[in-house]
Design a protein around this nucleic acid. Structure first.
Lengths: 279, 279
DNA sequence: CAGTGGTCTAGACCACTCG
DNA sequence: GAGTGGTCTAGACCACTGA
């Protein structure tokens, strides 16, 4: 089936037909934005929900609908436009799936304007705090989880026995108070047992170097594009899955021993990496 | 609203109630797979469509449902499970949105197994063909568009006058016959006028070096995560938007002149980049 | 506690595709 | 031409949220 075509919609059911004009319009006055006209043209082959989504997205792009502006509830807009709630729902669902909107219970739906982008340089091994500083931003971190674990998979990655212990940290990293990434890191406690005394708010890299005598030398990093998981959407304030950069990094000591393994999910709407390539 | 909870479904309408058992099952014999049981448990709080999607995805992960296997049509499965077509549709829509399924008109829906991944090394400036060769794969290319254009935006990026001419190429790149990336490239014809004679099937990098005397030196590349566009879904065989890596590259000559600008979209399900980081 | 979105039912017309 | 998915209508119950 083609997904782009759709003719005149189904007949309006077993009721009287065509008492309506071909075009229905409604003027909204969203709480956080300028007045906004939405209209449905029944003559167009474009589906109702697509017409609505197109108009709303255009208003966002024009800056007429700003971040936090609220739109009518599904039922209300459907009634005003004289279409079914389903059609409005499909429109709202599409906007949610594109991160342009969120639902807020009783108070209906709200517009989410796109986030500003940062473009850090990749190539040198550095911590998040340094990365943000280079961009002129202030980094902060929220520690979500901290535990000492025994994990077969990690033991195998680190080349340790399956009873080896690791420090596992889950952190959300912010740049100027905007959540940029959620990362899950494992540290080898066999290599650096002092890490068990690591305190929040300390740089793990500094701690490794100054307290454990572990000098990090280089790292192997992979980059892929994935959709955000539910946990990450929570951290980033996404209403649904969004494209993200997934970075996996293995950081090695000067002696070639793996010291850290990190998986960081970076929001795709805000993070753009740069790399310099040479012949 | 919570998106994860859903209680017992709505009452079955103005008909007689609960003549049905709590669990309805059906055994399918998909054309391209082993027999498969799907069931709906009306006592679970998990929505019907989620139950179905979970079971189907599990079968794909187990290899019971292979690439190309076909599933019943929405109407047929709905009837067999004694639920509405809408519920089945929601399940199928979710699977399509996760690239696990495609629709094929009359012949119902088909399973799409995930693609194999490649993990090229990023860091050195090289062409796609060389990248694939390093992975032990055979590269091929399909030229979609080729034109000489005048473009204000490009002129500004290249630092040329707004009447400058550029060669614009749109190509799909394959690794072992699997479409890996769709890229759009612009070349500066002021710098390398001979490029207008470029023939398909030639490496543009080799042509630049051997015929135009243009030696490429380094490049600045950016990497972001985006959703595929409709054109790209066409090239990659996706049923809907999928996460992709978007690479933008500016390639400079030894003299520091911009020679090439490329935007390449790499399918996220198959492409994983690797980078080496140093202190 | 009123209103919301999430889910579901039952039924309809359409353009398109495949046998 | 029969059957498909895409779209739409009308109406229902639910858990949850926020005024």
């Amino acid at each position: 089936m083609s997904t782009s075509t759709s003719p005149h919609p189904a007949a309006p059911g077993p009721h009287e037909v065509d008492t309506d004009a071909a075009v229905t319009s409604v003027v909204l006055e969203p709480a956080g934005g300028s007045p906004l006209r939405l209209s449905i043209d029944k003559r167009l082959s474009e589906p109702y929900y697509a017409q609505l989504a197109r108009q709303i997205k255009a208003q966002i792009a024009l800056g007429q609908l700003k971040d936090g502006a609220s739109l009518p509830s599904e039922r209300e807009l459907a009634q005003q436009l004289n279409i079914s709630r389903t059609a409005v729902k499909m429109c709202y669902e599409q906007l949610k799936s594109e991160a342009a909107m969120t639902a807020h219970g009783r108070s209906g739906v709200k517009i989410q304007a796109p986030a500003a982008q940062v473009t850090p340089q990749m190539g040198r091994l550095k911590g998040f705090t340094e990365e943000m500083r280079e961009l002129g931003m202030t980094a902060s971190t929220r520690l979500l989880e901290r535990e000492v674990v025994q994990d077969r998979t990690m033991a195998s990655i680190f080349g340790r026995s399956s009873t080896a212990r690791f420090l596992r940290l889950v952190r959300v990293r912010y740049g100027d108070a905007v959540p940029m990434t959620r990362e899950c890191a494992w540290y080898d406690l066999t290599l650096a047992p002092e890490l068990e005394q690591w305190q929040e708010q300390q740089s793990t890299y500094e701690f490794l170097s100054q307290r454990c005598g572990v000098r990090l030398m280089d790292a192997e990093q992979s980059i892929e594009a994935v959709m955000s998981s539910a946990v990450e959407q929570d951290c980033f304030g996404f209403a649904g899955p969004q494209p993200c950069l997934l970075l996996k990094r293995k950081t090695y000591t000067a002696g070639g021993q793996l010291a850290e393994y990190v998986e960081g999910t970076f929001r795709g709407d805000a993070y753009v990496y740069r790399v310099r390539l040479n012949t």
